[in-house]
């Protein structure tokens, strides 16, 4: 979704006229990659499952929050295709709802990372010199900090379980790679003819950077963004494992899976349902990301 909109923005950018045909090439190449297409379809299907599924399930009287202590955990059945958890809640709908949150977290956090990372990297590269040096050393320092430790500490400091903070935090730690990639790309584009041309007609640096250079670096950025989606999902899952994920009774795949992992010896379905769907999603995003890179990344274009 994010890729579609950014690609659209690129197509509208006047300076991107010269690269329009590479975009079409990329799309053609992507379509030829059967695995990437299949995985993209799976991903869309899972999105549909998560965002529309609960509505459909509602018609059958299933919801994610009704607690039935007397029932407890039951194995999958026709009434509850994914079974129920320890408190007797339906796992099918919980998996769907969990997916909504997991997908939302992944996209929001990636969007945040994208904005920070691209801006940071582009400015560093374009300004060059001492500014570049300082900005990149900051990135280095943050890179050295184990991200998860950072998140745990910050979450403890702010002591908030607001999901917005969770988005922002994960986004706030995933932008480093984006910044490095953008910088590299912008460095190589900085002295290209169309940039010189824009400079010659007196365009301001901000305009040159974000209207001319960044759209041309989009390929790399899209690839980096797609690659960060799965890792964001895993980060969220890890935080849930530590009990720092979304609050009960809300649940994400991360919380469901981490709960399920403690019950594997007793109620396997509590792990299997969200685990398989989550694993499939992450795998789909990974393949999609690889496909996009093959299609967009200029380095592999010669193949």
């Amino acid at each position: 979704m994010a890729t579609a909109t950014t690609a659209g923005a690129a197509a509208r950018a006047p300076a991107a006229v010269s690269v329009r045909s590479p975009w079409r090439d990329a799309w053609r190449r992507l379509r030829k990659n059967r695995m990437a297409v299949a995985m993209g379809a799976i991903f869309l299907a899972i999105c549909g499952f998560c965002f529309l599924g609960p509505i459909v399930a509602g018609w059958f009287g299933l919801d994610a929050t009704t607690i039935r202590i007397d029932r407890g955990a039951t194995a999958p059945s026709w009434a509850h295709p994914f079974g129920t958890d320890l408190l007797g809640r339906d796992m099918l709908v919980r998996t769907m709802i969990g997916g909504r949150i997991a997908i939302l977290v992944a996209f929001t956090a990636t969007a945040i990372a994208l904005v920070i990372g691209v801006t940071w990297g582009a400015i560093a590269a374009y300004a060059g010199g001492r500014v570049d040096y300082v900005m990149m050393r900051v990135v280095d320092a943050l890179y050295g900090f184990p991200t998860v430790v950072f998140v745990i500490v910050v979450m403890a400091v702010f002591d908030t379980k607001s999901i917005v903070v969770l988005f922002a935090l994960i986004g706030g730690i995933s932008w480093l790679n984006m910044a490095r990639q953008t910088r590299g790309q912008v460095l190589s584009l900085r002295h290209r003819e169309f940039v010189e041309a824009a400079r010659a007609v007196g365009a301001r640096p901000g305009r040159i950077l974000f209207r001319h250079i960044v759209p041309n670096a989009l390929g790399v950025i899209i690839v980096a963004a797609t690659a960060s989606l799965p890792s964001v999902m895993l980060t969220e899952a890890f935080l849930s494992f530590l009990g720092l994920g979304v609050q009960a009774p809300m649940a994400s795949w991360g919380t469901l899976v981490s709960e399920g992992s403690t019950q594997i010896s007793v109620y396997v379905w509590v792990l299997v349902a969200p685990g398989v769907v989550m694993g499939l999603t992450i795998m789909a995003l990974n393949f999609l990301g690889d496909g996009l890179r093959d299609a967009l990344d200029p380095q592999t274009r010669k193949d």
């Binding site: 297409v37 299949a38 379809a41 799976i42 299907a45 194995a75 007793v266 396997v268 499939l280």
Partner: peptide, 27 residues
């Protein structure tokens, strides 16, 4: 083709799900 692939994907998912549940229906 997309449809076929999708179908295949769901089949895999369902198969894994069933297999896992069967393999582990309690200690």
């Amino acid at each position: 083709m997309v449809g076929a692939m999708l179908h295949r994907g769901t089949t895999i998912a369902v198969a894994t799900l069933t297999a896992a549940s069967l393999a582990a229906c309690g200690l």
